[in-house]
C-alpha cells in the first residue's frame, strides 16, 4: 500500500470540502473495496477521508410512502431491517446473495454503489486496462473474459458492475441523493451508473466532489411477486455470471406492472423499460417471459469465453420471472433453483 494521509470528516459539508480540495483523495466508509484495491496499488489515493462516523446510518420512512436509507447503513443491517424484509424483500434477497456476512457487516450502502469492477485485468497492474489507466488498452477483449460483459460494451472496456444490491435497486427504481459544493441533487438509479463508452475510467455520474447521502426507495416494493436469482461458478460467496431481479404486480391473472434487471452482464445493472412494457397486460407464462428476455438481451454480444452468458441470461430471466409470478422467490440459503 502506498503512503496516504488519513483525515476524518467532521460532517457532510466538511467531507465535501475535503474531497474538493484534494482531487486524489478518496472517501472511506466500510473500506472493503478501497483497501483491497489499495493493497494491489490499483487505487493510489493521496488521502483517505474517513466518513464512517457521519450520521448517515438511519433507515426512515418518508412522506411519499417510501423509505430513505442512509448511505452508511451496513449491507447486513439493510438486508435484515424489518421494513426491508417486509416491504422490499427483493432488496434483502439480493444483498444476501452477495459477499459474505463479514463483508456485509462492513460494507456500506453508498460504498456498494461505488464499488469497482472485478475484471481480472483491472486488478492486474502489469496488464493494460483502460479503466485503470485510460488509453492503455483493454486486455479483457482478447483475454480471459468469462466474467465480462455481453451488453453495453465498448471497444475500450467490457467490464461488469459487480453488485447484487444495485440490481435490486435498479428494479425498484430507487433514487440516489447526493450532495456537492453546489448543493444537493437526486439521481434516478438508472442514471447513476454509466456504460463505459470511450471513458471507462468513469464508473458513475457522481461528480468527483460529490458524496452519496442516501438511497430512497419508492412506495412500490413488489413484496408479493419477486425473485432474485444469481448464477455463479460456486454456490456462495462468488460474483454473478448472470443474475436477475424480477418483480411483478399481478391483477386478475395478468401482469399489471413488471420490473426486470440483470447483474453480471454489463457495466451497470441492465434494464430496459421496453422489456417491462412488453410484459404489461400479458398472462404470466413462459411465452411472455421469453419475449421479454429477447427484448432485454437484444444486441447482446459474447466474447471468446463468455458467449454462454447470452443463453444463460435468457434462461435466468425466464426462471426468475416464473419464480416471481408463482410467489416462490429463490431462497439464497437453499441452492436448488425452484
Amino acid at each position: 500500500m502506498i503512503n496516504f494521509r488519513y483525515t476524518r470528516a467532521t460532517d457532510v459539508g466538511d467531507a465535501v470540502r475535503q474531497i474538493a480540495a484534494e482531487p486524489k483523495a478518496k472517501f472511506i466508509a466500510g473500506g472493503t473495496n478501497i483497501l483491497d484495491l489499495m493493497k494491489y496499488e490499483v487505487e493510489q489515493p493521496t488521502q483517505l477521508i474517513d466518513i464512517s462516523h457521519l450520521p448517515l446510518r438511519i433507515i426512515e420512512e418518508v412522506p411519499s410512502g417510501g423509505l430513505r436509507i442512509g448511505a452508511l447503513v451496513p449491507n447486513s443491517d439493510l438486508a435484515y431491517h424489518p421494513l426491508i424484509e417486509a416491504r422490499y424483500p427483493i432488496l434483502s434477497s439480493a444483498i444476501l446473495a452477495g459477499a459474505s456476512q463479514q463483508l456485509r457487516n462492513m460494507a456500506s450502502t453508498g460504498g456498494n454503489l461505488m464499488q469497482r469492477t472485478r475484471c481480472f485485468y483491472f486488478y492486474d497492474t502489469v496488464t493494460p486496462c483502460n479503466k485503470r489507466e485510460p488509453g492503455s488498452g483493454c486486455s479483457a477483449i482478447e483475454g480471459i473474459n468469462r466474467i465480462n460483459a455481453i451488453l453495453g460494451t465498448s471497444e475500450a472496456c467490457i467490464a461488469t458492475h459487480p453488485s447484487d444490491m444495485c440490481v435490486a435497486l435498479a428494479a425498484l427504481e430507487a433514487t440516489v441523493h447526493v450532495i456537492g459544493p453546489s448543493g444537493e441533487r437526486a439521481i434516478p438509479f438508472a442514471d447513476f451508473h454509466r456504460l463505459p463508452g470511450g471513458t471507462p475510467e468513469i464508473d458513475t455520474n457522481l461528480a468527483p466532489d460529490e458524496i452519496i447521502m442516501a438511497v430512497e426507495l419508492p412506495p412500490q416494493g413488489f413484496a408479493s411477486h419477486y425473485s432474485y436469482l444469481k448464477i455463479r461458478d460456486r454456490l456462495s460467496y462468488a460474483f454473478a455470471l448472470v443474475s436477475a431481479a424480477a418483480a411483478l404486480e399481478l391483477d386478475g391473472g395478468r401482469i399489471a406492472e413488471a420490473r426486470l434487471a440483470l447483474g453480471g452482464v454489463a457495466h451497470k445493472p441492465w434494464r430496459r423499460v421496453e422489456a417491462e412494457a412488453a410484459l404489461r397486460g400479458e398472462v404470466p407464462d413462459r411465452a411472455a417471459f421469453a419475449k421479454a428476455a429477447d427484448i432485454l438481451l437484444r444486441g447482446s454480444c459474447g466474447f471468446a469465453h463468455n458467449g454462454f452468458k447470452i443463453g444463460l441470461a435468457h434462461r435466468v430471466i425466464e426462471r426468475t420471472l416464473m419464480q416471481a409470478a408463482h410467489g416462490t422467490p429463490q431462497i439464497q440459503a437453499i441452492k436448488k433453483i425452484r
Binding site: G31, T32, D36, S76, S100, Q101, N105, M106
Partner: peptide, 21 residues
C-alpha cells in the same frame, strides 16, 4: 475469512479494516 474477528460484537475481516478507524 482466516482473519475474522469481532468488532463491537460483529464479525469482520480484520485484513480490510484500518486500525486507525
Amino acid at each position: 475469512g482466516a482473519c475474522t474477528v469481532l468488532v463491537d460484537g460483529r464479525r469482520v475481516n480484520s485484513c480490510l479494516v484500518l486500525a486507525i478507524m
